[in-house]
Nucleic acid binder design. Structure first.
Lengths: 186, 186, 186, 186
DNA sequence: CATGAATGAGAATTCATTCAT
DNA sequence: GATGAATGAATTCTCATTCAT
């Protein structure tokens, strides 16, 4: 009996994500994924029940990836300003280092049939807990969780999405960080 | 008769947008659109050269819709606080009143093959011009355009996307407006 | 606008029936039918919603074919013996002249998913009405409809199914007719 | 251990037959059978060379099952009337007690690729021999074997196939038996 | 013997588009 | 302009079968 080849499943996932970056969620077919991953289309159905199921499963898995990436960059003894700086720059550099995953998650989270299956709320909760701690220590102002999430993550993602050669990313990031520090710190 | 034709094209557009809200950009086919609009698939090709063309054209048209909606709500003699209030609430209510257009634009703007065809920059420019005026009059602080766009529009759209019955939208909107007023007004 | 080509649909039906005779109801695919009929597989879906639907529809249509064939051969002024003779020989010659339809109906009527969609009862009713008339006139003995149907049609179909070069069909038919005349006539 | 294996093969056969009753001979795949039998698809190929082989083999085996069932119910000293009664009622009750086998055999015997592999003639021969004996003893009239088979088995199977809640089976069976007794006994 | 993974071939069906009217 | 028919190409997915263990 042959064992499930973890590497094979990994290749399938990566091919899917890469193709969706290149060709969009429409325009990415199971056979293209299979070809890119170097497996038979039938093999994909060993690992996933259907294309939709596959999208949902990988979306679920990757939707928390940027937050996990952030958590690794955050030191527990950072001051408030550094925390905001790390979050914003972390978000941005995640979008550059993992362009495919970033684009994949952005696309899936806008797709009605997929977005309802994954809650942003869960993904974000570790970070929020951290911020609660800063609030309790009187470092962060008290805002409701969801507004906090909105102001912390949405603008930097907006910049990451609308990346443009003509503009200076660095300045905009610095400006955004400055804004958020003014806004959120006591 | 010209009117009849325009009505037909209008119905096609509406069907496309409605279907994409319901079934996602993947999962929306030309024949489904035709059926929903009550026309023949062939008729769609009277108005558009291809599906991709159609998506792009309608995307181009609708991508500025929220901004046009906003502009109608803004009075020239508003003070800075009211302007921010109007922008944020306007964005939000647009997403509720035109759920299909909102979702459509969100999906298209994440899709690599479409997003490159439409520049957010153009859509946003009327609003930015307005703000430049407020900046010139010493009402708004001076931030770079893109950061301004990011902070003004991304968070409220984030809230609109992650709408959730359990949370109180009103409070979050008020909180966000308060934040932005603190941040942007002199 | 092109009109639905009745001949095309006819060819599809004939190809299906012919293939099912040759290769069985399993072993007959939509693409084989399309190829045999000289149309694209997609064309079949212009006329039928699905393969199952197509089978059912054609089954429904053809399941009464042998009875219609019989009715054409029956003269209203036949005596009882001639009627039985005509029915039995008619059944048999239908199975020879329309081998494909005969085999198709036999296969479909045994297939659980199809048989429940068509009632033998309806198909048989014209013939039964005729026999009721003979019963009323004191020519046929009175038996219940269903037993009558069973004894009149099942044995001859059995002979048609188990056709075999080594045996003399004619003698068996004659013997069967003799039997049924003894049994059913006053 | 030999017993375990036979049990496995038995389960495979039963699953196949059960599935074919439920979903038809088309619509029954090797993997479904394997799943239903609780074995791996590969295991099926330990016992059978191919799906077609498996169908044929089990068809061959089961095609004589109703006759074996009958033979067990027949007593050597029955009179002619009782023999006919036993045959007809036996056929019918077999179809009720072994619905799956009955439907399986009916389906296979209509399928061109399978029916040619099994001869009804062989299956029926024990019963025919018995009847020859009754004929020799002047109890049964002399008819040719094949007509005899047709009249004895086809009608009751017809009733079994077209079973219907609204009709009274018992009356029809009794009527049919009466018919056949009149017909076949001296 | 028994297995779950793996697959090429092919299944049913839909797609975007064009044709003929 | 408008249409339903028609379709080649592609879609998702399943099939019967074999492989590696």
């Amino acid at each position: 009996m042959r064992l499930r080849d973890q590497d094979k499943q990994q290749r399938i996932k990566q091919s899917m994500v890469r193709l969706i970056l290149r060709e969009g969620i429409n325009g990415t077919s199971v056979s293209k994924i299979a070809k890119d991953a170097g497996v038979s289309p039938a093999t994909i159905y060993v690992y996933y029940d259907s294309k939709e199921e596959m999208l949902a499963e990988v979306f679920r898995e990757y939707s928390s990836a940027p937050y996990r990436y952030l958590m690794q960059r955050i030191e527990p003894d950072m001051d408030g300003g550094a925390l905001i700086d790390t979050i914003v720059r972390g978000c941005y550099s995640f979008s550059r280092e993992h362009e495919d995953v970033f684009s994949f998650v952005e696309q899936c989270s806008r797709c009605p049939t997929l977005s309802e299956r994954v809650s942003e709320e869960e993904c974000i909760c570790d970070i929020l807990e951290l911020i609660h701690n800063y609030q309790a220590r009187g470092i962060f102002r008290r805002y409701s969780d969801w507004t906090l999430g909105a102001i912390l993550f949405a603008p930097v993602r907006f910049l990451a999405m609308n990346r443009c050669v003509s503009r200076s990313e660095e300045e905009e990031l610095a400006e955004l960080i400055q804004m958020l520090q003014n806004l959120l710190l006591m």
